[in-house]
Computed example of a mutant assay.
Amino acid sequence: MATIKAPNGDYNGSIGDVVFTDGVAETDNKAVIAYCRGAGYEVDGATDNPAALPRWEGDSSKTHEQVGTPLRDAAVDPKPGDFLPPVNAGQADPHSPDVVSPEIHASPGPTPIVPGPVSDDPEVQGERETEGARLALLEQLPAQEVTDQLADNGKQVEPPAGNASADEWRAYAVEHRGATEDEVAGMKRDDLREKYGN
């Protein structure tokens, strides 16, 4: 059991689960002991002097280098490549109820789970999740009605036969897989089947 004395002898409070009375506490909690040593508390009669700890002697002439992606609020500053951006992002006040986040598939929250298989194509899945959020949170439709609409009224739509025409595959991709007319306009049947047939 270690005895810890706070720099302020009148301290009555706690660090983690360790309670100080008049600046003194006893504990065997190793995390609190380590914290207190590093923060200049006296632990079992010894105090680490923070001023004596090694200091970084780096080159201060170097400029800041960004590592990774800077934080950005997609509700305020949406970008075309954002995955599952908030509905109405950049179009309405980001703090209003008109801007809502679809969240990720099956996350617990106010929106119902989008029915059917999760698409391999993040853009297609993102569009389905966003539509679910729009219907549930903005249109205020009941969960069952939202899931019915997203599942084509509860019916699982099978892709066309493998030897169906390219036009049939294009229609299926647009109506049931979230593709646009422009995306599928020049695609051949085998390419359509590979991309949208799963």
Rank of each mutant, 00 (worst) to 15 (best):
G109D: 01
E103N: 08
E65V: 15
G90C: 02
P115V: 10
E65F: 08
L71I: 08
P70Q: 06
N88E: 05
P97N: 06
P78T: 07
D98G: 03
T63D: 13
H105M: 08
P86T: 03
L53T: 04
D73A: 15
S107E: 13
P112A: 01
G58H: 07
A74Y: 09
P110I: 00
L71R: 10
G68Y: 04
W56I: 13
T63K: 15
I104P: 05
E57G: 10
A89F: 01
D98E: 11
S60W: 08
P70D: 05
K79E: 11
H64E: 12
T111A: 07
I104F: 14
T63P: 02
P110E: 06
Q66E: 12
T111E: 06
P112N: 00
P97F: 00
V99I: 11
V99N: 03
G116A: 01
A74V: 05
V87S: 04
S96H: 05
A52L: 08
P54V: 13
E65G: 09
I104Y: 13
P86G: 15
P108R: 10
K62Y: 13
A89Q: 03
E103Y: 08
L84W: 01
D82I: 05
V100I: 11
P85W: 00
V114Q: 04
P94K: 07
Q66F: 11
P78Y: 06
R55S: 11
L71S: 06
L53K: 05
R72N: 03
H105N: 09
V87F: 05
P112E: 00
A75V: 13
L71K: 09
A89W: 00
S107Y: 11
V99G: 03
F83C: 07
L84I: 10
P97Q: 01
R72F: 02
N88H: 08
G68F: 04
E57A: 14
F83T: 11
D59C: 02
A74G: 11
D73R: 13
L53S: 07
V100M: 03
F83E: 10
G90W: 02
G58R: 03
S61K: 06
P54S: 15
V99W: 12
S61V: 00
K62L: 15
Q66G: 04
V67T: 09
R55F: 14
V76I: 15
D93W: 07
T111Q: 02
P115C: 08
P97I: 00
V67E: 11
A89E: 01
K62F: 11
K62A: 12
G58W: 06
A75Y: 09
H95C: 02
V114T: 13
D98R: 09
Q66R: 12
V100R: 02
V100Y: 02
P94Y: 12
A75W: 09
P86S: 11
P78E: 04
